[in-house]
Nucleic acid binder design. Structure first.
Length: 193
DNA sequence: CAAGAGATCATCT
DNA sequence: GATGATCTCTTGA
């Protein structure tokens, strides 16, 4: 079943943990791609120095202040798209970064987009995942309760979860140590251990 | 296999 | 004008 908005309105850390094992579905004219989420990161509110919204409410971060269950997509380092899911109530800026997924459907399409045959190289990182799923800024602000990009729950709950510090946020002072990166233990499709 | 550099641009100062 | 919520390729052991 498609995940309802109430799911995304929970606390960001809960959403980040519960997203593990859920299925990301992307409809596209070239075909549908589906992946099982195996790695996420939480970015929580105005206090969290690693969260973009901690530098204030701007045109770019506006989407994070909006209602839960929408996509926040932006570009880092001039190349790579990042897919985030907005959480919690309106006016509280928070989101979950989808960092890695295990390819499930549309694998040939992913191989073509990623220009590699290696299954583990298709979506084992936030930038790779966006390339494999054809996610770019045109999807910024999309409603995940719609039909172009959404998540499914197949009922197979994931319990074996581990937490680690987030990646690439050395500038965030004491916030860089928060164990807000979540992975499925032992899964070979994560970005790194 | 680990470490380092380069690529390249939207966003905010 | 500086800086990234990254990836890939090259180098060297």
């Amino acid at each position: 079943m498609k995940i309802p908005r109430s799911f995304y309105e929970q606390s960001t850390l809960d959403v980040a943990r519960q997203l593990l094992g859920k299925y990301l579905v992307r409809k596209h004219p070239d075909g549908t791609t589906v992946g099982r989420i195996v790695e996420t990161e939480a970015y929580v509110g105005p206090e969290d120095k690693a969260c973009h919204a901690s530098r204030g409410r701007t045109a770019r971060t506006e989407i994070m202040f909006g209602p839960a269950g929408h996509a926040y997509v932006y570009i880092v380092y001039g190349f790579h798209h990042m897919l985030n899911i907005v959480t919690e109530q309106t006016d509280f800026p928070a989101a979950v970064l989808i960092r890695a997924a295990e390819p499930v459907r549309g694998i040939d399409l992913m191989k073509k987009r990623r220009r590699t045959q290696e299954p583990r190289q298709l979506a084992s990182g936030p930038g790779k995942l966006c390339e494999a799923f054809a996610i770019d800024r045109t999807l910024n602000g999309s409603d995940l309760c719609g039909s172009v990009l959404y998540l499914r729950d197949n009922g197979d709950a994931t319990t074996d979860i581990i937490a680690r510090p987030r990646i690439g946020v050395d500038y965030a002072g004491k916030w860089k140590h928060k164990p807000w990166r979540f992975l499925i233990r032992g899964n070979p499709f994560v970005s790194k251990l």
